Simulated scan of single mutants.
Amino acid sequence: MQWNSLVALALVAPSHALIRFGCSQLVVDRLDPLVNPGLTPSPHLHQIIGGNSFQPSMKPGEHDLAALSTCTTCQPSDDFSNYWTAALFFRARNGTYKRVPQKGNVGFEGQKGGMTVYYMQNHLGDFQQKSKVTAFKPGFRMLIGSPTASTKEEADKYPQLTYTCLQDMNTRFPETKDFPKKPCPAGIMVNLRFPTCWDGVNVDSPDHISHMSYPANGTFESQGPCPASHPVRVPQLMYEVIFETKAFNNKADWPADGSQPFVWSFGDRTGYGNHGDYLFGWKNDSLQKIMDEECYVNCQTMKTQPISAMNACSVGRKVDEDIGDGGWIESLPGVPNSKIR
């Protein structure tokens, strides 16, 4: 179903909040303040959106994103959170690489790269959104997925990390756990849905995952109950990252053996290593107020800014290296010899 149709159907009855918004690119850099705090450079390249207080070290309690940021690349002007995923590369037949750029989603065509972010109380197609949720707290952070996953069995531990081969910009199905095997006319969309059950106490955990859980049975979509260990239902955070593969869709440029040519910035050609990170940074209780409102996408309590302001917010790269935005590079940044699985 097309996005415009979803919004039209949502107008037939009142609902609780589901928000969908675009975020332009903040920076593409080899930093990871969640997994590798203070390490410059981090092991692999990321594409990052959100508040401009993003830096190599962002320890809980020492870094208030909403207070320290002066702008955000996201449409909600009160959202100074940071969201990031790995960067994607195309590997040519001669073994050289070029970074695949991102593009805006439907409704955000003018934004500079970045991604689309959702906060949902029920699944996307549920226009009532009746399940009440507790917004994330200051200092909250989490990640989902694992860059070391190299098999479907390992990737299945994170059931809601998928890919969509876009036939056009409204394509949403089917979804796969590995990279598409054929050229995608409108790009590759990477979908990341985070767990929705919180332990109610810890805003982080050593592995950045254990304070969160999937439902005890069923799924988020089926409104499965949270386990006793993680009883607090939080919004489902979802990223849609659209990589513009147009320049790389000529099959004559793909590997001679017919395999697909895309590779994550940490060296994964399977796609099973898909992962994403999140640092909460909404100002005051602005996210909770939005979640409590009866609205679907267009929420009166969500203050917004124009795409021009989103595009104007950026930070300089901390790591000075060639990341394959111009000419071809011999290896992936931070990945010596770039051995491809």
Rank of each mutant, 00 (worst) to 15 (best):
S5M: 15
R317H: 05
K283W: 01
C184F: 01
N36C: 12
V106A: 13
P14E: 15
H123I: 04
E294R: 15
S15E: 14
Y272P: 04
I188S: 08
L124M: 12
Y158S: 11
L161M: 14
C71I: 03
T116Y: 00
S77F: 00
S338T: 13
C313P: 08
A86C: 11
N191P: 01
G200F: 02
N298T: 14
R317L: 09
D292P: 08
S213Q: 09
E221I: 05
Q25S: 15
V203M: 08
P60D: 02
A312Y: 03
H63C: 03
Q288V: 08
V100F: 03
E321V: 09
S338H: 11
C299T: 11
F220R: 05
F248S: 06
A149I: 09
T301P: 06
C313K: 13
V335Y: 08
Y118F: 10
A309S: 12
L237F: 01
G276H: 02
P306F: 03
L332I: 10
S24L: 14
L237D: 01
I209D: 10
F266L: 02
F21C: 11
M238A: 04
D207C: 07
Q75G: 06
L143K: 12
S77P: 06
M302P: 08
T148F: 06
S259R: 04
M58I: 00
S210E: 10
A312S: 14
S53R: 02
T301I: 10
I19A: 09
L9D: 15
C184I: 07
S286E: 14
P235I: 02
L287M: 10
P33Q: 13
F280Y: 09
F108A: 12
S69L: 05
V190T: 11
N249G: 01
K303P: 02
F21E: 11
Y97H: 13
G276V: 04
T171V: 11
I329N: 10
I340V: 15
F136K: 03
V203W: 00
C74A: 09
V35T: 14
E244M: 04
